[in-house]
Nucleic acid binder design. Structure first.
Length: 364
RNA sequence: GGUGGGCUUCCCGAGCGGUCAAAGGGGGCAGACUGUAAAUCUGCUGCGGUAGCUUCGGUGGUUCGAAUCCACCGCCCACCA
């Protein structure tokens, strides 16, 4: 048993847990910073340690294109290659089926991609994706799925779900390295019967964890929460539940209340590079805005991050304004700190049995 | 002193009689962003809510009509004395 639930919230479905991997423990609920191409953009591993990140993501599609599996294999695996000694979860490339849909074509056993970099053609299916993730030697391997777009008709959803089911079963059959574990991904768009069917089918495959995909792709927030209400209760309780690609701080708190243990999202790092800071209450602040030109206070007086302890909004705005990379770095540090700190507060609240109050206070 | 070139909206810069409130950059401002084709992208950028009003160094003039043509004045840059 690599996952252990330590405590459950008496009032919600929130759980406190520990996920064991060959590169260490992951304390859940967890937020996993996204490092698509072998780097959490603008952050060094030392800084991620300092921020207390338990685990980061990598991406099969992107790392396959560059530097390529041969290089990573030669380096001794992704951990060695990027100098990160804690757990890594690799996404399968299923999201790129969705996000790069203009550049690819479905086939029975996978997707014919055209590289967004040089136009070269290659094929990615469950077999290929898992083989790449095996070469990367990530701690958590994601099954290869088809991330359904939104809006989506029931006819499209059924085709997509059938494809995902087939691909995930094929993914599960692929060998893994010792210690690697694989998570399956529930799809089914915003249709209750499809979501439940998908969750039931996946449970049969006995994955080490269960992800919910195909959300936060444009559907209303309420629809996302509704999907969680359908799906999470029928996922195995003894396994971690991972909501892929989500989300805003308030969405994370709401999803934890619905029994989700793991999250990843590019929002904190991307918004940082685009000039916005997340505040402790979940709101965003456009630090690049003109009104902060002469504001010599930190982004957040209460924040314990390196940026807030040492720099003012006026200075960070100036750095952003003139295009100095330190501005992006400081905001990235701040946003990741805010996210990881939120997760600490969530875990503490569950441990203390006060998560329901925390949730009410936070989302108010 | 002479000859030639120039002065355009915050900046650079196009424009060479009507379709010009004026191309294109830059800068500025605002917005978007959810398993990252993203240090990216989109929109706005003379005033006014509209009708319209005020701009293209200055002042006059030519013309139905001028940023565009003419005269004078001012300033800048070249080269020649």
């Amino acid at each position: 048993m690599s996952y252990k639930v330590l405590k459950t919230c008496p009032d919600t479905r929130a759980r406190l847990g520990i996920l064991q991997t060959p590169h260490g423990e992951i304390r859940t609920p967890v937020f996993m910073p996204v490092g698509t191409r072998g780097s959490v953009k603008a952050m060094s591993p030392a800084e991620l340690h300092e921020l207390d990140a338990d685990i980061i993501l990598g991406n099969t599609y992107h790392l396959f294109l560059r530097p390529g599996t041969d290089i990573v294999t030669k380096a001794g695996g992704l951990h060695e290659f990027i100098g990160w000694d804690r757990p890594i979860l690799t996404d399968s490339g299923g999201y790129q089926v969705f996000s790069l849909s203009k550049l690819n074509k479905f086939e029975k056993d996978g997707v014919r991609f055209q590289s967004h970099i040089d136009g070269s053609r290659f094929f990615l299916g469950p077999k290929e994706s898992i083989a790449i993730q095996r070469a990367l030697n990530s701690d958590i391997v994601m099954a290869f799925d088809d991330c359904t777009p939104y809006p989506c008709t029931k006819e499209q959803a059924v085709i997509s779900l059938e494809r995902t089911s087939r691909w995930e079963a094929a993914s599960r059959e692929q060998p893994l390295n010792p210690g690697q574990q694989m998570f399956g991904i529930v799809q089914g768009s915003t249709f209750k019967d499809f979501r439940q069917q998908s969750a039931a089918e996946l449970s049969q495959l006995d994955f080490e964890g269960y992800a919910i995909g195909g959300l936060s792709v444009g559907e209303p927030e309420e629809a996302m929460f509704e999907c969680l209400d359908w799906v999470v209760p029928i996922l195995p309780d003894s396994k971690p539940h991972y909501l892929m690609g989500v989300g805003t701080p308030k969405q994370i708190v709401e999803a934890v209340a619905r029994g989700v243990d793991m999250f990843d999202c590019v929002i904190p790092t991307r918004l940082a590079r685009h000039g916005s800071a997340f505040l402790a209450n979940g709101d965003t602040m456009p630090v690049k805005a003109a009104k902060y030109r002469d504001d010599f206070t930190p982004i957040d007086e209460e924040c314990g991050c390196y940026a807030c302890q040492n720099f003012t909004k006026a200075y960070i705005r100036h750095l952003l304004n003139v295009g100095e990379i330190l501005g992006l770095r400081l905001l990235t540090i701040h946003n990741l700190y805010t996210y990881l700190n939120l997760m600490r507060q969530i875990r503490q609240a569950i441990a203390d049995g006060t998560f329901a109050e925390f949730r009410t206070r936070y989302t108010a």
